[in-house]
Design a binder for these strands. Structure first.
Length: 824
DNA sequence: GCTCCGCCTTTATCA
DNA sequence: AAGGCGGAGC
């Protein structure tokens, strides 16, 4: 019998699993190419896997983890794997479990943010937080900064909530805090002095509310480890193998965190730990210390697209210098895309100088040409996308294997309008998220106020929601009462009796305070639960939420409102209740704080549901790490991609190119590139020019259904619109269409004349047929398709769809509510 | 304190 | 185009 250390087992030891058979261990490298195999099998302190797009890095990572566990080099609990999204984490766990045929429980596979929250909740008191601290999102940050800027009159110096937020975020990502910033600040610059004051107040308010923003989650964990080396040692001892995915997108704070976690534990602290009952046997080396954890990072500097949030490409470029003796493995063979798609990607990215040469290749053949299309308007472009999706669908491609990408969330509008009208099942991933709706934030604020009574932001939000007659004057009175008596806002609410306010207002405040207190009492575990450190005896999150919604009057206010939109809002709140029920069911014994944490840390990509039969719409950023049979890259125009804002930033255009590259390499078999000649922006229509990056794709690779040149010559009103120079792209060389040969190039097309039905057919207005009811057998007339007979009606409510056999236009599906039809 | 109206700005990308 | 904000009127 072999005994090995299990850090999660109270006894510290347990029997090792039976020795792996030879077949089992080779199973983990079977079917891998030599480089992948090396990446799985290499053992050493530091390993960098440079993984081109689609080169099978997730496979390599999961096999590497499984191999560490199966060879008994590590227990699951000694592994920390950092992924970019929670969904990627869940997938990775699942795949490791499949490989091991066993549960991988105890393994930490999570995002940077989730891992840090987990550590911080455990150690919160060490750094002066309550363990139920709130996580503030950007909107919360903005609200606070708006108040601060207003109080300080900082807008006169040009500060906006957005600018202050960006600057604070940038500093935190560099691990700067108020003091360190103050030390280097130029005190003769009034603007800098003002910023310092904003930063200071912002920090103070978050502290007082026991709240952290997203950037704090990482930075505070680093501070924790630096200020409390003993705490750090516990995690350094625990995690023996650390693996980081998407390493090219780590920022300095994340890099510092990894550095902290991979530090060795010195011999004297090992002795100390042992005296405190921490089992360190079998972990120490000859010096008596615990060596640093082994580090594996995976990344591709060509896919670095998060410089705006502090990602530092140097982390990956200089990995070999940071970790001397590091092994580097390069994965270039692509298993995802056709050669045509890869050639386009290679051609585009090769325009970024200052990069390590890397060429993706596949053994799977050229595949189809890339399809290009230039619409006259964004709606025209969207119609092309919708029509092509229908063609793909009829050819047997499932909707869920199709994705549409764009640079900015605002671009979804035209796409959605057309998709709704075409009765295409689609889903916007991310975008205006459910949890960002005002009514959901209100309901969540009730939960937050219960979980973290110090959170003044949440309390102020619900103070007069629903309307209780508590206005700004009362709110200010409460706040100053709290300040004068050194009370929290919540305590001040409880003692509102003594404020000399009107009886109605006073009653409203104390009522709210009572409701919150009662909900808090519901959520306290039983004595037995507390003793065991579990949540036993506490009410479920859904029960607490229902209690709060009913007792606060929030749900009634929405239901009884005469504002028609409140009906939808009430439904949304009910949807939230349903979500808490799901949460309770899927996470038995989980607490309210667990729920709030999960909600705070969902990423856009986490919402993706593989089982849904819908087309996915998302930003290029969200698309990272995903792949689809068919990909539509839309809005390929100067000003959008590259985005205007990027022009002023150093390295901006190069990063935008990488974004384009990421988009291209998501496609397996079919890639569509589209743009619009004109696009409505800020309420007016602007002429758009094709993106400079389109030029970088060798011409033979694209089959233009309608090229920019053709669109111009057919468009009529502006025969030389490609020459029209607008504000951006002043840099000459990059601006497109300034030279005749560019025009000519795009005037050449191999396909037949563009389909007339796409052009200008769609306008921005949506009609509404109200409650028009149709049944199979009805005759209708359609503006474009003429007369036809309804064969079937599917769907419900506003999403009812009529299947119509038109006399001349064939079979069509129409959304009854808005289709341009009339019943005959 | 609430509500309505008109003006004004605003838009990148994310955890 | 749409949401946020401030002022006017109740």
């Amino acid at each position: 019998m072999t005994l090995i250390l299990d850090p999660d087992d109270p006894a510290g030891w347990r029997e090792a699993p039976s020795a792996p058979s030879a077949t089992a261990s080779s199973r983990l490298t079977d079917g891998l190419n030599p480089e992948q195999r090396e990446a799985v099998e290499y053992r050493g302190q530091a390993l960098l896997i440079v993984a081109g797009a689609g080169s099978g890095k997730t496979r390599v990572l999961t096999h590497r983890i499984a191999s560490l566990i199966e060879s008994r080099e590590a227990w699951p609990s000694q592994i920390l794997a950092i992924t970019f999204t929670n969904k990627a984490a869940a997938e990775m766990r699942e795949r490791v479990e499949v490989l091991l045929g066993d549960s991988a429980s105890g393994m930490w596979i999570s995002t940077f943010h989730s891992a840090c929250v987990r550590i911080l909740r455990r150690e919160a008191e060490a750094i002066g937080l309550t363990s139920t601290f709130t996580i503030y999102d950007s909107a919360d940050q903005r609200t606070i900064l708006k108040r601060i800027i207003k109080e300080l009159d900082a807008d006169t110096l040009g500060f906006t909530p957005a600018s202050a937020q960006a600057k604070i975020s940038k500093l935190k990502n560099e691990l700067a805090d108020v003091e360190s910033y103050a030390r280097n600040a130029n005190t003769s610059d009034p603007q800098e002095v003002m910023f310092l004051e904003i930063f200071r107040q912002y920090t103070r308010r978050l502290r007082e509310a026991s709240a952290l923003d997203f950037d704090d989650l990482i930075a505070e964990t680093v501070y924790l480890f630096r200020a409390f080396p003993k705490v750090a040692s516990l995690y350094q001892r625990r995690f023996r193998h650390i693996l980081v995915d998407e390493y090219q997108d780590t920022n300095h704070a994340q890099y510092a965190l990894i550095r902290e976690l991979t530090q060795p534990v010195p011999a004297d602290r090992v002795v100390e730990m042992e005296q405190h009952g921490v089992n360190v046997a079998a972990l120490t080396d000859a010096s008596g210390g615990i060596p640093g954890a082994s580090l594996t990072v995976v990344g591709d500097s060509d896919q670095s697209i998060y410089a705006f949030r502090g990602a530092d490409i140097r982390n990956i470029v200089e990995f070999e210098r940071d970790f001397p003796g590091a092994k580097v493995v390069l994965l270039e063979q692509n298993y995802r895309s056709t050669q045509n798609i890869l050639s386009a990607a290679n051609a585009v990215i090769s325009n970024n100088f200052d990069r390590k040469e890397k060429k993706l290749w596949t053994a799977d053949g050229d595949g189809d040409q890339i399809t290009g299309y230039t619409g006259y308007t964004a709606h025209d472009e969207a119609q092309f996308v919708a029509d092509e999706i229908e063609v793909l669908h009829r050819a047997g491609v499932a909707y869920r294997d199709i994705a549409v990408f764009y640079r900015t969330n605002a671009q979804t509008r035209a796409l959605e309008e057309i998709f709704v009208r075409s009765a295409l099942p689609y889903r916007v991933v991310g975008g205006t998220k459910f949890y960002e709706r005002a009514e959901i934030k209100d309901a969540m604020a009730y939960l937050i106020a219960v979980a973290n009574p110090l959170d003044e932001l949440a309390l102020r939000r619900i103070l007069n929601t629903p309307k209780r007659g508590i206005g700004p004057a009362t709110e200010t009175a409460l706040a100053s009462f709290a300040e004068q008596n050194a009370l929290s806002f919540r305590q001040a609410m409880r003692s509102a009796d003594g404020l000399g306010l009107g009886p109605k207002v006073t009653g409203a405040i104390t009522n709210l305070a009572t409701v919150l207190d009662e909900a808090a009492a519901m959520l306290v575990p039983s004595a037995a639960g507390i003793a065991a450190g579990t949540n036993e005896g506490a009410s479920k999150v859904s029960d607490a939420l229902v209690f709060l919604l009913e007792r606060s009057g929030l749900i009634d206010a929405l239901r009884n409102s005469r504002d028609p939109q409140d009906e939808t809002r009430a439904e949304n709140v009910e949807e939230l209740v349903a979500q808490t029920r799901d949460f309770d069911r899927e996470n038995p014994g989980a607490s309210l704080v667990d729920f709030l944490t999960q909600v705070s840390l969902v990423a856009a990509a986490d919402e993706l549901d593989d089982a849904s039969g819908t087309v996915s719409l998302m930003t290029l950023h969200t698309a990272k790490g995903l792949e689809y049979h068919a990909v539509f890259l839309t809005g390929l125009e100067e000003g959008l991609l590259p985005h205007q804002m990027s022009a002023s930033e150093p390295g901006g255009p190069a990063e935008e190119r990488r974004l384009f590259y990421v988009g291209i390499t998501r496609a397996r078999k079919r890639l569509y590139l589209s743009l619009a000649m004109s696009r409505a922006q800020f309420g007016e229509v602007a002429v758009a020019m094709p993106s400079r990056y389109l030029q970088e794709i060798p011409e033979g690779l694209i089959d233009w259904r309608q090229s920019p040149g053709m669109a111009t010559s057919r468009g009529g009103t502006q025969p030389r619109a490609l020459n029209a120079r607008r504000g951006y792209g002043q840099g000459g060389g990059g601006a497109w269409g300034t030279r005749d040969r560019d025009l000519e190039r795009f005037s050449v097309t191999k396909s037949a004349a563009p389909k007339a039905e796409w052009a200008n057919r769609v306008t921005g207005t949506v009609r509404d047929n109200g409650d028009l009811t149709l049944a199979a057998g009805d005759r209708i007339r359609h503006v474009d398709f003429g007369e036809g007979r309804v064969t079937q009606v599917t769907g419900e409510g506003t999403k009812r769809i009529a299947h119509v056999a038109f006399d001349t236009a064939g079979q069509k599906k129409l959304l009854i509510k808005i289709a341009p039809i009339e019943k005959l």
